[in-house]
Nucleic acid binder design. Structure first.
Lengths: 124, 124
DNA sequence: TTATTATATTCCAGCATAAGAATATGTCAA
DNA sequence: TTGACATATTCTTATGCTGGAATATAATAA
């Protein structure tokens, strides 16, 4: 078996950095023409069209015709599975920060409480 | 240019579902031997070793020798970039829920306020 | 119709993957 | 040393991506 298709799910689709850049550009929730993405990201038009195609297949963006322009709009909801999965691990670093803070505060308090003639048995 | 390496960053590494399964299995923060992962996920041992190798290269897990076992531990911090990126879009669906609720409440209130002889000019 | 603009699609090259099979490496026990 | 166990590595095969170049499609204007 080879690597899963980029169109398999949101996880595979967002692995490509340029696609994340496109998503970030659509983050305002409004519609954007392909040409605008091309200009802002300075990427060749076919490259942008292909990446938008992948995002559309996965449901991360939707497209609509307006004259000769094709307007793309972010469907952020399709990113929720990624956020949900990663959220299960957020407590690791948020709690980590709290623990570090607590430890630092405790150390500072111990330093303050300790008089110049240090108690060598203070370790804990 | 081809697809970025799975070892390029956390985004590429977690695109593979089996690797996410391994991460989920290590989510308790404790160490786990390769054989345990093999048994719990019912995957061939070389497959597990290879996936763990990718995760280790990206820094999502760390390994240590203990006798003939190799113990792997999750380094959840390496997942933070994924969470941070996805978090920028969380307001789309959380606010969406709020907006839906508000709209529903307003509609119910309007229904209640409106007497049987309906005001046809109520649209807004 | 013809030209122009906007976007999508096709074909190609190079590359890296994932799983399976076989084998290698490393550690402990007798 | 030999054997058993735990894990890693190598090799192969099939697959599919990404960007570039060229071209096709679609819509509007002249």
């Amino acid at each position: 078996m080879a690597r899963a298709a980029t169109t398999a799910d949101a996880f595979n689709a967002i692995a490509e950095p340029r696609r994340r850049a496109i998503i970030d550009l659509l983050a305002d929730g409004r519609t954007h023409a392909v040409g605008e993405v091309v200009r802002r990201l300075r990427l060749p038009q076919p490259v942008v069209s292909k990446h938008l195609g992948v995002l559309r297949t996965v449901g991360i963006v939707s497209a609509s015709r307006h004259g000769r322009h094709r307007l793309y709009r972010l469907n952020a909801h399709a990113i929720k599975p990624v956020h949900d999965w990663a959220s299960a691990y957020a407590h690791f670093w948020t709690h980590q920060v709290e623990r570090i803070k607590e430890r630092a505060e405790r150390r500072i308090l111990e330093e303050l409480v300790r008089k110049p003639d240090t108690n060598k048995e203070a370790g804990r």
